[in-house]
């Protein structure tokens, strides 16, 4: 599904070079629920961003469903992100100007051939999965942290992505909420979606099928 080959990522600021990722080789199989663990600053989020085509590696190859994305234009990667990938962020990153339903349908706005009616129907469907249909007319500021993250999950799911990338999805939530979210993710995974999740929390990671540990930009 995703194959990373000799991935390196170097951040350069003036004269300082930080090697965030060192020669990473990793394969994510279809249907897998993988968690990436490691201390702060070890490069796990950088790895997730590269897997999600949000960032480019300094060197190395990324194969997504067998397609080398290295030479792809920004236009093409945007299309690929829209159709194949879904994102869940630690800080939810919902758009405050938009209602819950409008936030959820966001990925479909950038997909050709999806009508207004279909967008709305699919957004309601996605909200049903996270049990938030009663809140669809509300705005993010009116929701709790856990509810916001469920909205973010609905947004990530609406485009029916093959891979869901979650960057510390429970990082901003209390333990009860975190449990709810991880159970939801497990359910999503059971329905066939591949999930890669970055987390600090071993308890959360223990719910996944594979745990990858990273230290100083290397897989242990």
């Amino acid at each position: 599904m995703i194959k990373l080959d000799k991935i390196n990522k170097v951040f350069r600021t003036n004269e300082i070079e930080t090697h965030a990722l060192n020669n990473i080789n990793l394969t994510v199989e279809k249907g897998e629920f993988m968690s990436i663990m490691g201390p702060s600053g070890c490069g796990k989020s950088t790895l997730l961003n590269i897997m999600g085509l949000l960032d480019k590696p300094t060197s190395g190859t990324i194969l997504l469903n067998g397609i080398n994305v290295e030479e792809m234009s920004e236009h093409k990667t945007a299309e690929l992100r829209n159709k194949t990938l879904g994102f869940i962020f630690q800080s939810f990153h919902l758009i405050p100007a938009l209602s819950i339903i409008d936030n959820v349908e966001l990925p479909l706005l950038y997909r050709k051939g999806v009508s207004y009616k279909e967008r709305k129907e699919r957004a309601v469907e996605a909200l049903q999965k996270v049990e938030l249909t009663h809140r669809m007319k509300h705005f993010p500021s009116q929701l709790s942290g856990g509810q916001c993250q469920r909205v973010a999950i609905a947004r990530a799911l609406i485009g029916q992505p093959e891979i869901l990338l979650a960057d510390e999805p429970t990082g901003n939530l209390d333990s009860k909420m975190s449990e709810e979210i991880i159970l939801l993710l497990c359910e999503i995974n059971r329905s066939g979606t591949t999930i890669v999740m970055v987390t600090h929390d071993i308890k959360m990671a223990s719910n996944t099928s594979r745990i990858i540990n990273i230290l100083d930009g290397k897989i242990l």
């Binding site: 999600g52 920004e74 945007a78 299309e79 990153h93 758009i95 966001l106 706005l109 950038y110 997909r111």
Partner: peptide, 16 residues
Amino acid sequence: AKEIAVRRAFGAKPFS
């Protein structure tokens, strides 16, 4: 900037 970054993450092209 954040809103734009989120939109781009979900497939918005630079022009839109």
